[in-house]
Computed example of a mutant assay.
Amino acid sequence: MSTTHRPTAAEDFIGYLRAYHSDAIDGNDPVEEVWERYHLPDGPHRVNGRLWDHKKIMRSLRSRRSLDAPYELYVHELVVEGDRAAARYTISTPMAWKFQSATDAAVFAEMAGDGRVARSDAFSASRPGWAGHGGSAPSDAAARPTPGAVPAPPPADGAEPTPAQDPAHYLRAYYAAGYDPAVPAAEAHDRFHTPDAVHQVGGKVMQRSGVLKALEDGRKRKHSYPVEVHETLREGDRFAVRYTTSRGGNPKKSQEVFAFGEFAPDGRVRRVCFVLEPGYGAA
């Protein structure tokens, strides 16, 4: 067993992601030992909405290590609030020439008193791709909030909060207005987003015109997406939200979504990435 210090999730969450994946994929220590080095052994861990027990986690780690293949880890987003953190990242594995297998991942985690991860909710989806980072900044520095960002002041008594003051309010109100035929689609978008806001939905990048078309198409089909927010994090001008939505409130069409966004100085959202299965259709 190596005595080299590895950062805990509480000390440095990006450092934890890198050290954990390095030890789990490239290391020689037993995977059980690697897992408990960074995580409480009995903490709850969910992947794509399903609880993974210790046996399944170990099987997954052994399977990945058995590939004996190099990998590249790119951290795109990080939001830390107190003893919780949320991150979005990509793990790419070269296959042949410039062709790669890429795993898009996101995680919401809570840290224990000793710095290890006590529980986590994660998203993971693999896709074919090309060498590189898929258009997302590979630099860890890009995952940090804008320096000097100051949250907007709280609303006056009885006033409705702006999106910048409450990420959960932003999601609930935007979904409600976006699919309300009584509210013009352009108004629904511009109330919550800057005109040049960029949306990334299930891997598809859209600007204002694309979002408006998606909203109009959903309205024609009489779609609605009630939102149940599970947790939110805010750090500077960045936010992360884990929530569940469903088409028309139908449990059979429910989808857990991880959203990562950035607020503009006026309180509206100027960039938001919805991490979900491609083709689900949330906007």
Rank of each mutant, 00 (worst) to 15 (best):
A159K: 10
T245S: 15
R59S: 14
V257C: 10
S224I: 04
A159R: 11
S63M: 12
S136I: 01
A156M: 08
T146Q: 09
D12P: 09
R46L: 13
G178M: 08
F13H: 15
T162P: 00
W35R: 09
S254L: 01
T244N: 02
G129D: 07
A87T: 07
S124E: 12
A164W: 04
E256K: 13
Y280S: 06
P94M: 09
E262H: 11
V229D: 05
F239Y: 10
R271K: 15
R6V: 15
A152W: 06
V198Y: 05
G279H: 04
G248C: 05
A87G: 08
R268G: 00
K98N: 13
N250H: 10
F274V: 00
V229A: 03
A283C: 12
R191L: 02
P181F: 08
D196I: 05
R238E: 05
D68G: 06
G129E: 03
L233E: 05
K253W: 05
P30R: 02
G115M: 12
A156R: 14
A182E: 14
G218E: 07
E235D: 14
G148S: 08
R238Y: 02
V227M: 11
P70N: 06
H193W: 09
S254C: 03
V79L: 11
D83N: 15
G202R: 02
W130T: 08
S126H: 10
